[in-house]
């Protein structure tokens, strides 16, 4: 464990909690892409099946349980409890265009052609593009609630911090995982224009609105 990975995990946890509280407190999931949240639930489910097979640490296990629990709770709030506030018209990204190629790539490019490893690889690839429906929805509505931008900032920051973690581990532990790194770079790059808008607008107290 190193400081980049720990702050990365805490940033990820913060994002998940911010979103859950936003929906729960405002009793509304306006502006939130339910499709992205379903993809994240799939990402955690396929990645954390090793909860059943291997124990790494209390921290590792508890964080995985929290991530999975919050992901499904968020999906439940969006599609069941507050489904009247779900903006399905703007959440129109075709996720099959993500899941099918990612599934094919996971079968072709992986470290080990075993069930759990292919699922892990699928989860890594899927996570790198899972935010696209949410970013697409914001581009369609042309704006995002400030709390939603904080959620996205923490979510984008987490994998950027993981990139620093991988540099650290390469340098100090001479280990690195090309699949996780390449997917992590893609994932972080997808947030770049959002990061620019967040830093130039939201941090200056303005609302995030895109030139529609």
């Amino acid at each position: 464990m190193n400081v980049f990975r720990l702050t990365g995990d805490l940033s990820h946890l913060a994002a998940i909690i911010i979103l859950l509280l936003k929906i729960w407190k405002s009793r509304s999931c306006a502006g939130i892409s339910g499709k992205s949240q379903i993809l994240f639930a799939i990402v955690f489910t396929t990645r954390y099946l090793d909860l059943l097979t291997s124990f790494i640490s209390i921290y590792n296990t508890s964080m995985k349980v929290i991530y999975i629990g919050c992901a499904y709770a968020t999906v439940y709030l969006i599609y069941m409890k507050f489904r009247a506030t779900y903006d399905g018209n703007h959440d129109s990204f075709r996720v099959e265009f993500l899941v099918v190629p990612v599934g094919g790539l996971a079968v072709l490019v992986n470290h080990d052609f075993s069930f759990l490893e292919i699922l892990w690889t699928f989860s890594i690839y899927l996570e790198s593009v899972a935010i696209l429906p949410q970013l697409f929805m914001i581009s369609k509505t042309g704006e995002a609630e400030t709390i939603t931008t904080h959620y996205l900032f923490c979510l984008g920051l987490y994998r950027a911090l993981y990139l620093l973690n991988w540099i650290w581990r390469f340098y100090f532990e001479s280990f690195f995982d090309m699949i996780a790194i390449v997917a992590g770079v893609v994932q972080t790059v997808l947030y770049c224009d959002f990061f620019y808008l967040y830093i130039t607008k939201v941090l200056k107290g303005k609302k995030l609105s895109l030139p529609a």
Binding site: Y67, F175, M178
Partner: peptide
């Protein structure tokens, strides 16, 4: 370098 055998990251 080597690859992680066990995925110890979240």
């Amino acid at each position: 370098w080597q690859r992680w055998s066990l995925h110890d990251e979240l």
